[in-house]
Amino acid sequence: MNSTLPDYKQMMSPEVRDRFARLVRRPVIMETRNLFKEFPTSSGKNQIVLKDISFQVHQREFLSIIGPSGCGKSTLIRILAGLETATSGEILLDGKPVVAPGAERGMVFQKYTLFPWLTVCRNVMFGLESIGKDRDTAENIALQWLDIIGLARYADYYPGQLSGGMQQRVAIARALAPQPRVLLMDEPFGALDAQTRTQMQNYLLEVWRNIDITIIFVTHDLDEAVYLSDRILALKANPGEINELIEVPLPRPRRSRMLLEPEFLATREHIDKLIRPPVKREDECEFKVVNMVGDKTFL
């Protein structure tokens, strides 16, 4: 329906083009080389979930990973976090290979994974204490973080007493407090309602703008990916492999009104075509309204 939209690549302003030129000159923070992941199946044949994934993330970049369901995007980010191991290939963080989970790669999950038995402040302190900060230092840093996310008032609340959006803000603060090199986010706003989701997106951009952090963000929401990211890694399903790396032609800082601008719509349209699975004939069923009541007044 938006076939009148021009190609998104042509819409990039010189400023944005310049931004990307600077971006790729920044140091590479995280890199994957020829990553493969296979799962054994009951039939004995291994199913290839990720096939030959190679990409680089530069310092302070916001990279989204998007793809149809089952393309292995969650598996990919879990491998980056060290929670799962790749069958073959390499993951490098600052040039050093990644083998296990660690504090230098913070992670935010879709489920709010706050520790329910710890107060909000203690939750944020958890990572700091894990990397060897003493209690007082950890508490001071945690309180600063709660200030940044605007939840200082709730320091002594338990997570169960907060709304979903607030809990996810605490989870972000908890992941950022130990100053990771990269923040991995696995559909972090997927469980939130539409309104809170928009708020959280703007809020995340605000935090990202103000600190030195690189973000890898997995989502299945097109608007979210285009609105937030510098570049978007679109995956194919079965097996999951890189389809295209898209540079988003929108300037920074992002504003909600950009959701209606042609640059946004063209990029969205382009990715939509990329990741929408080809429709098979048997899926194209026709819906017929059947009059179940047998009563003319129903029609």
Binding site: L83, A100, P101, A103, E104, M107, F109, T113, F126, R174
Partner: peptide, 13 residues
């Protein structure tokens, strides 16, 4: 909850 254990792992515990 495995998710909590994973969260702790990514926090460097």
């Amino acid at each position: 909850d495995g998710a909590l254990i994973e969260a702790a792992q990514t926090l460097g515990a």
